[in-house]
């Protein structure tokens, strides 16, 4: 391509006739174009990845896992014993090959998941983490004052319910198995899955009550 001399810059004032990319967009474009040229990434693969994370992977995957565990005792036992395999059996596999662990909520123990280091999160079942999960207040306070954090999420647990906090790492990601709400006997997995919120699988919430679907 012949070089077109930049006559657009002849005026020397603030008015640009051309386009302008933000400094951060320039950094991303620079990085990406170099990685593509050197053969480390393919543009099509990047687009596919983005589309997958924007549209196909999300907390609905995790909700189906939970609903199946509520409906099928054998699946639940498998999920608690080998979460990586039980989750993969439904077609949800982590690109990172991370090890999944399921922690079960009971009347005695409530589980809460955090990543104090950065934002490790069970992507394959929950998609990408919400903004608050990545923010310093949650990351620092979930460990020090889990009950206080839960109160801010509107979740008041009985005083005699213990709270276990699980700190995710690059190797181990946790999925909370919330308690099945009362009054859902005989519900299909599909209907049950609608009660399973993202927050209930992080532990900052519990599953919705059946009335929430009306």
């Amino acid at each position: 391509m012949p070089h077109d001399h930049d006559h657009d810059h002849a005026h020397g004032d603030d008015h640009h006739h051309g386009s302008e990319l933000s400094p951060i967009a320039l950094r991303v474009k620079a990085l990406e174009s170099l990685l593509v040229e050197k053969g480390y990434v393919e543009p099509e693969a990047l687009d596919t990845l983005i589309e997958t994370y924007e549209t196909k992977i999300g907390p609905r995957n995790g909700a189906r896992v939970v609903a199946k565990a509520w409906s099928d005792p054998k699946y639940k036992a498998w999920l608690l014993d080998d979460a990586t395999a039980a989750i993969a059996s439904l077609g949800y596999t982590g690109r990172q090959g991370e090890h999944m662990v399921t922690v079960e909520n009971t009347p005695e123990t409530h589980n809460l998941v955090v990543c104090t280091l950065c934002s490790c999160y069970p992507w394959s079942v929950l998609g990408l983490p919400p903004v608050w999960y990545k923010a310093p207040p949650y990351r620092s306070r979930a460990v020090i004052d889990p009950r206080g954090v839960l109160t801010e999420f509107g979740l008041m647990l009985p005083d005699d319910t213990a709270i276990s906090v699980w700190d995710s790492t690059a190797e181990i990601r946790y999925l909370v198995l919330p308690m099945r709400p009362q009054g859902t006997e005989g519900w299909s997995e599909e209907k049950l899955s609608q009660l399973v919120t993202r927050d209930s699988m992080i532990g900052t919430g519990i599953a919705l009550a059946p009335g929430a679907l009306l």
């Binding site: 480390y40 990434v41 393919e42 693969a45 990047l46 990845l49 999300g58 690109r95 609608q194």
Partner: peptide, 26 residues
């Protein structure tokens, strides 16, 4: 039903940066 989730990415460059890291690790 649960409320809609936050947008996954706020700006295109965030998505690009995300995908590059995931791709390089893969």
């Amino acid at each position: 039903m649960s409320p809609p989730d936050d947008p996954v990415f706020n700006e295109p460059w965030e998505a690009q940066a995300f995908a590059m890291a995931v791709s390089l690790e893969a």
